[in-house]
Nucleic acid binder design. Structure first.
Lengths: 212, 212
DNA sequence: AATTAATTGTTGCATTTGCAACAATTCTGT
DNA sequence: ACAGAATTGTTGCAAATGCAACAATTAATT
């Protein structure tokens, strides 16, 4: 059950103790349920113990954008977001079991001074640092001026991370276009040009980077 | 001297103790000095105690990009960056006094169990959260499709934060274009269109949002 | 297995943007 | 106070991109 890096190194028994001490609620949700709305304004931390969900945002037009896919172990909460986001909520995309507690518990020195507390704080630091890394990587891509550069940078990053030249995209092209902040059809077009120019080969969502 | 939010709530005396315990180096730099290069690869945390600096990045073409302006109190370090950034360094833009120590000291339980330690960890959590907020806000802008939308979003955010419709840009238009990942001349052009269309008024770097 | 929903792939066209180049202005250092 | 550097402001033009619209394919639901 303990798949989240936030709880890494905390054993089952301590975790139970902690959940009690933190006044944690573990809630089970059916598919397609709104877990919390208006998230940016509160101080809750949530961890997906089982299932999947999405972090979504509604803009003033009512358009829904997926900000993040949350899977087993993912951590979410207002603390990770910009405070001028308005309507942010979490929706389950499958049956899910989610733990929620108040962020304030983390820095507070527990009166029982539980030893898992130190571990949890370290994990929280790592979790925040990881999120920062991801955001920085995305910014790096978003600031590239052309869609071509965005694609190449993204492919190189993915290739480097996996240590190989061929890989399957972890998301749909529709989502990739959103990730790049770019029109989907424009992305497909540029993808074709990249193939024509011999930079990559593709087969559905399988990408191969060509060494030139 | 203690102007950084990282050291908030830690008094002068404790700070000195802490610096000793953390094996901290306080170094003074002349203007235009490289403080550290290849930063993404190490684990150092730096805090600007006095002066100003920039966080810069050299890409494979040797082009220099300013990633962040660091002022008194700013915190920098590999932990805040994406690991696949290559050449990141810090350059002073004025005489500066900078504190550096290893990040590993922060989560580690100090053997003397100094009470400022808890405070420091809390501050570190806030610092990380603040950085996340800033990055999220920038991503929000970067994913807008047009320069016009980017400008409007940015102006609205700034106006909301300051609680007024008129304000002075905190950076040059050149830097703003970089922040948006957009060509500078294209930004100037769009700015003119926004004026023509009555969305804003400008006088040098003074912007007024027009209620329509 | 059949129906519906979602994603992919493609294209024409208008608009936006980047790029290059230059003059004007403001800022900085000596 | 001056010289050089940096920033601002503008423009023409080519290239890239967004938008709309649609068919084809694949995935999901009942």
């Amino acid at each position: 059950m303990n798949k989240s890096s936030l709880f890494d190194g905390i054993n089952e028994k301590d975790l139970k103790k902690m959940f009690k001490c933190f006044d944690t609620r573990i809630i089970e949700y059916k598919k397609d349920t709104t877990v919390i709305s208006n998230m940016a304004k509160n101080n809750l931390i949530g961890v997906i113990m089982e299932g999947e969900a999405v972090l979504v945002r509604y803009d003033y037009n009512g358009n829904r954008t997926i900000l993040e896919h949350l899977e087993e172990g993912s951590v979410f909460g207002g603390i990770f977001l910009s405070s001028n986001f308005n309507e942010i909520s979490v929706h389950t995309t499958s049956y899910s079991k989610i733990v929620m507690f108040d962020f304030d518990h983390i820095p507070k020195k527990c009166n029982k001074n539980c030893d898992y507390h130190t571990v949890l704080i370290n994990n929280m630091l790592s979790t925040l640092a990881e999120k920062l890394q991801k955001l920085n990587e995305r910014i790096e891509i978003l600031t590239k001026k052309s869609t071509r550069e965005k694609l190449l940078e993204y492919f190189e990053n993915t290739g480097r991370r996996l240590g190989r030249k061929t890989f399957t995209l972890p998301m749909s092209y529709t989502d990739l276009a959103d990730y790049f902040g770019v029109d989907r059809s424009a992305l497909m077009r540029e993808l074709k040009y990249l193939k024509d120019d011999g930079f990559i080969e593709t087969n559905k969502k399988r990408i191969t980077i060509i060494n030139y």
